[in-house]
Design a protein around this nucleic acid. Structure first.
Lengths: 245, 245
DNA sequence: TACTACATCTCGCAT
DNA sequence: ATGCGAGGTGTAGTA
């Protein structure tokens, strides 16, 4: 593919807010929050209508280089090849792509107003605990699932029959050291703010790493096994077609 | 584009370990670590030679759905449309894409043996501190930059003239509450393992959030302003071409 | 804008 | 395989 027709496609795609994807041989220089250089090789480059850009190598889930939305893009001739420059004012990020060979490109206006319906998040887990308090303990009375309020970002907050305040931190997967220190921070914050000492810290997760459990015990907190719910209502009835694999 | 030729391209691309990208109208169902559903809309789908797959909506940096490497892919006819199913045994992840319209596709074998050279990471920052110990304090004597060793993941470890052990935790950006709790964990671990009490905790970062600084002071640790170096040697000489923007 | 925490995080490294 | 932490993390939600 020649550069001139590439440039036409590129300009048109940006003007019409299309999604633009192409294969090329390029080298890449990044400068901003860090600095990076990627020597010559074949890559796929994807540019969306919001001017996000990502460069993909032939393997791996994550782009090897990218620019976030809110930047500017410019394609220009430079000596024997083309140069695609991106600049993001907010992050002060620069990306320079030197394009040696253009292979193919594809462009299309995508119409998509849908949003992902997702269940099985940490929020779903804390909702479920609110509705099933005995999963924490027999006498646990949840008061609130306060996220961004006065006491911070506690997943589930309540009390028990002995008058203890109870703080529950949820983790969807194996709870680790970070989860324990996070819980500890919340418990200490409550003790400080409320001026009380009867505060219980509970870590709720399907599993916990040995180190995390040791630390948890050492600080007097407890772990409760809770498996997060993750069934979409609309898919409950359909059985998954496992037969295909 | 008709489905039959699409299927041929798809099979060939997978067989030849090519990178395969196409535009289509589809709906998506995900089940595994969580559950998700995305109703009908136009998307770009990218499949790489390692069988990673990602579905992109017309905006945003991150794919709305994806599958990691190590899975299986299968395209098959299903009633009036096609269905692209993916299964990842390790994660027990299922992804079903129902394709209503195929627009265009592009496939190519990408040759790329390059790896990203990156500087300005937390490791570079701790290296720099090792070589410039006075950035921490006048009498700081670094002993080691131990990452994955017996004492844990301490960025820089050393001592001062008064015989204190000194633990430095580096953050490349604004240090937050997490950074402080992380430092605290390391300090307490050292106190426990070494059986000493003269341990100083230092958080090194270019900036620190107010909450984090409060907590740091409360626990008796200190913050040192360190701006991480991030210039690639090879790019030191070239001045960045800011003129283009 | 800054701060906080989640994420189907991904990725690499060490045990 | 699991545990742990970094990441140019990105993204959402809130003060």
């Amino acid at each position: 593919m020649d550069f001139v027709s590439f440039q036409k496609q590129f300009d048109l795609a940006l003007k019409k807010a299309q999604t633009f994807v192409f294969f090329c041989e390029c080298s890449i220089q990044y400068s901003g929050r860090a600095e990076a250089f990627l020597d010559r090789g074949d890559r796929l480059i994807l540019i969306k209508q919001d001017k996000t850009m990502q460069i993909h190598q032939p393997e791996g889930s994550t782009p090897i280089n990218y620019m976030k939305a809110g930047g500017e893009l410019k394609l220009q001739r430079e000596n024997k090849h083309y140069s695609l420059k991106a600049y993001h004012p907010g992050d002060k990020d620069y990306l320079d792509i030197e394009i040696y060979k253009m292979y193919d490109c594809l462009t299309r206006k995508l119409e998509d107003g849908q949003k992902l319906e997702l269940v099985g998040t940490e929020r779903d887990m804390s909702d479920w605990i609110m509705q099933n308090p005995t999963s924490i303990s027999k006498d646990f009375k949840p008061l609130s699932r306060e996220e961004h309020t006065k006491f911070g970002f506690i997943d589930v907050f309540g009390h028990d029959r002995e008058g203890n305040l109870v703080i529950v931190e949820c983790k969807r997967y194996t709870a680790n050291l970070d989860a324990v220190t996070q819980l500890r921070r919340y418990v200490e914050k409550i003790i400080e703010l409320k001026g009380v000492k009867k505060v219980k810290g509970i870590l709720a997760s399907p599993t916990i790493s040995p180190n995390a459990e040791n630390m948890l015990k050492k600080w007097g907190y407890t772990w409760v096994r809770v498996v997060p719910p993750k069934r979409l209502e609309r898919h409950n009835k359909k059985q998954h077609s496992l037969g295909d694999f």
